[in-house]
Design a protein around this nucleic acid. Structure first.
Length: 585
RNA sequence: GGUCCCAUAGCUCAGCAGGAUAGAGCGCAGGAUUCCUAAUCCUGAGGCCGAUGGUUCGAAUCCAUCUGGGAUCACCA
């Protein structure tokens, strides 16, 4: 049961029956009518702007129309009070029985409460991480990984048919470099002294075991082969090993993809899929042979004007046409991307989401152009750019340089602060906003740390049940019908908490549709805050405490409320991918 | 230079498809509490929402220009 959806239909129903509306119904757009919680709780429980939206087309003024609508809404027995305020807002206050029924339905739905159908089973593909398989993941991948994963979870909960996908960039020259780096480690494993790793190769120790594995499997045989011969063998081994590392890293972050899609597959069989994709674009009239104008600003030293096969992406919104085939006849990375997109489109996705780092911002228009050209405007593609994360240790920025290999790995961060803290903090900021990540603050066990604060609220809920078991030794809470006693919930403080819970489905839908998982994190914090505040009231007013051993029925009713709070926290935390602990001593 | 993101309280940030008196946490000021259910609680001060125009009944929110900060520019992947 969704309070705001419920009242939206009730309000629209009431409108349909008004004479003044009936006369001009065809000219009215109900789509702009909003039914939402009022900014200030003192205004009521539900507010609508219906009168302000409809006044103009009806040729009347908002206040007058609001009065008419308000009168009609008073007929609803669940409504206890309707008032008109400000420029024409209609504020509705709900009677206790409605809240009690709502609470009962929340309890009955448990962690399914809030699940929505707005996604309408639309097929959505969320691609995220897609880190190059040349080494373990570093902190830079963290944010996109968490945001993408949480967004996918969120959209699933909101009724989309979601596929979590990882694009493996396992073709191209960086993989050759990887293979050569591994080959060096292989020689090292055979007993050769390799000295310092030459610049241009990957120096990381994580390649040592890969070299050893090759030495064990092949002995010295590879050593005597020409590069052409050992390259494919070493490549396969290296990519497999790197993907194993990455999968471990993802696991540590609680990130799980449904599909790992290999770029090499697009290049297989004489680049069959890429050729097909280019043919498709050519057929649709988007491909030509020509030259590009030199880049604006500073001209690269090796710039030469050469003819190549180009995608006329400027026709579909890009700033510049894009090369598909290099002058040496090989395909560009971008060509593979076209093929990859076409493959996704052919797999039948309605929505394709790319979660990228801000450093890929320049790539967005290109991808959108591909989507338009390949799908003839039918596919919906959105790119979610995550701004960069700055690491701090005790207020001091952590310096990283790729050259010296002195970068912080994802694993180090997770090991130090814990998966839950990493995930929640990555979500506790709008993704279009840069993020400061301070190790000290993130690991702090205090109410100033949002992760702790929210998880602690859940642990506190569990604690209430533990106490209830002590107070009522005979009660079996697993089989108890908690929702049956909801009608005993009537204290204004409790009602406020129920009202907060009532916002959950709205938050889910709005966050999923706006593709902004941070909204959920903020909501969870807000809910936790309401719960803690109510708990604290019990200190001064013992009659508000959840467990009262003198009043069994009331205690059971309140345990129902606690159960509902715990369910929403658990469900929301699950979407963010963080745990909902039972205790946190 | 082009493109993209950002600018809201002293600090870090929310603000939901324009709507009521712009919110939270920290910090600051004052007060309560040594009790208890588990990591205190309550109150208060703080803002021309970067600037200027525009759109309209109404703009922090939409549009244009400007200022300041970040990212990016390729036959790389």
């Amino acid at each position: 049961m969704n309070l705001f959806a419920d009242f939206e239909t009730r309000i629209k129903n009431a409108l349909e029956h008004l004479d003044i509306v009936k006369e001009k119904r065809s000219e009215l757009d109900f789509g702009r009518i909003a039914v939402e919680p009022p900014r200030d709780q003192s205004h009521g429980d539900v507010a609508t702007n219906a009168a302000m939206v409809l006044a103009k087309p009806l040729g009347t003024n908002p206040r007058a129309l609001a009065d008419i609508i308000a009168e009609a809404l008073r007929a609803d027995t669940d409504v206890s009070e309707v008032s008109v305020a400000g420029p024409g807002f209609i504020n509705i206050r709900l009677g206790a029985p409605y809240w009690q029924r709502l609470l009962a339905s929340m309890i009955a739905e448990g962690t399914d409460y809030g699940r929505s159908k707005v996604g309408a089973e639309k097929k959505a593909n969320v691609e995220y991480v897609s880190a190059n398989p040349t080494g373990p993941m570093h902190v830079g991948h963290c944010r996109g990984a968490v945001v993408g994963d949480a967004l996918a979870n969120l959209m699933k909960f909101a009724g989309y048919d979601v596929t979590k996908e990882y694009y493996i960039n396992d073709a191209g020259s960086q993989i050759d470099v990887l293979a050569r780096s591994v080959f060096l480690r292989y020689r090292e494993a055979l007993g050769e002294t390799i000295g310092e790793i030459p610049s241009g190769l990957y120096p990381g120790d994580y390649l040592v075991p890969v070299g050893q594995a090759l030495a064990e499997e092949y002995g010295p045989r590879l050593h005597n082969m020409p590069e052409d011969a050992w390259m494919p063998i070493v490549k396969d081994k290296a990519i497999d090993a790197m993907m194993a590392l990455i999968r471990d890293d993802l696991e540590a972050l609680n990130v799980h993809h449904d599909v790992f899609y290999s770029e090499r597959a697009l290049h297989a069989n004489g680049a069959q899929r890429i050729r097909q994709a280019i043919n498709d674009l050519t057929f649709k009239g988007h491909v030509y042979k020509g030259t590009l104008p030199p880049p604006k600003g500073q001209l690269p030293e090796d710039w030469e004007d050469r003819e190549q096969t180009l995608f006329r992406s400027t026709d579909v919104g890009d700033d510049m046409d894009r090369p598909l085939i290099k002058s040496d006849g090989s395909y560009t990375y971008f060509a593979a991307d076209v093929a990859y997109f076409k493959d996704k489109f052919d797999r039948g996705y309605d929505e394709m989401i790319y979660v990228l780092g801000a450093d890929h911002g320049g790539y967005v228009k290109r991808l959108e152009a591909v989507a338009r050209a390949v799908s003839a405007g039918k596919a919906k593609l959105t790119v979610l750019l995550c701004q960069l994360v700055k690491l701090y240790r005790n207020g001091e920025p952590v310096k990283m340089s790729k050259r010296s290999g002195n970068f912080v790995t994802l694993r180090e961060v997770v090991d130090e602060v814990g998966r839950d803290a990493v995930r929640f903090m990555m979500l506790y900021r709008k993704s279009s906003e840069p993020l400061d990540f301070d190790f000290a603050k993130v690991t702090e066990q205090s109410k100033d740390n949002p992760v702790f604060y929210v998880q602690y609220a859940h642990a506190r809920c569990s604690s209430v049940f533990r106490q209830a078991k002590e107070a009522f030794p005979g009660l079996d809470f697993d089989s108890l019908d908690l929702k049956g006693s909801s009608s005993l919930i009537n204290d204004p403080n409790e009602m406020q908490l129920v009202a907060k819970l009532a916002e959950y489905p709205r938050i889910i839908e709005a966050a999923a549709q706006a593709q902004e998982p941070h909204r959920l994190a903020f909501y969870l914090y807000d809910l936790a805050s309401f719960f803690h505040a109510h708990w604290n009231k019990g200190k001064e007013q013992p009659e508000l405490r959840f467990v009262n051993d003198k009043n069994r029925e009331l205690s059971i009713a309140r345990l129902g409320l606690v159960h509902a709070v715990a369910s929403v926290l658990k469900s929301g935390l699950a979407i963010t991918g963080t745990a909902a602990p039972e205790e946190m001593r």
